[in-house]
């Protein structure tokens, strides 16, 4: 007996489920956060164009040569960030950013900080292996 009809139906059912799941995630209202404002949007573009993520992480995702910056604004504030942006470090390049670019990046980091907390210490672990914040 051919197993083809059986295989095909498993295959097609999985595809349908996958497409539904995708559609839900594209269309769902991400109520958790407001969209970034215009300055923060510019900041996000500069963040991407300078490839800050090759060294830094947001929510633990990115390169590993520098620290996670999700909540740096909330924890350390604007002047601290600006100092790094102005001169870089031994490893971090000095990008010779203009004042506007720095303001945009700071605004982006202020926005990321408002979206949640990435510190693993802020989570509670449960016996079933799940976590909550």
């Amino acid at each position: 007996m051919s197993t083809y009809p059986w295989k095909l139906s498993v295959f097609l059912s999985l595809i349908v489920l996958f497409l539904l799941y995708s559609a839900v995630l594209y269309c769902r209202e991400y109520k958790e956060v407001l969209p970034a404002d215009v300055l923060a949007q510019d900041g996000k573009m500069i963040w991407q164009q300078k490839n800050c993520v090759s060294c830094h992480q947001l929510y633990g995702l990115g390169g590993h040569l520098g620290p996670d910056l999700t909540n740096v604004y909330g924890k350390k504030g604007e002047p601290y960030i600006k100092a790094f942006l102005q001169s870089g470090t031994t490893v971090m390049p000095n990008y010779h950013l203009t004042e506007n670019e720095m303001q945009a990046l700071i605004s982006f980091l202020k926005y990321t900080s408002s979206t949640g907390i990435s510190d693993p210490n802020s989570f509670t672990k449960h016996n079933d292996g799940t976590i909550s914040q």
Partner: peptide, 16 residues
Amino acid sequence: PGIGNRLIQDMTIQWK
């Protein structure tokens, strides 16, 4: 823009 401007949605779809 509607997706790229919302960090959490952007990162969800990116890692998906």
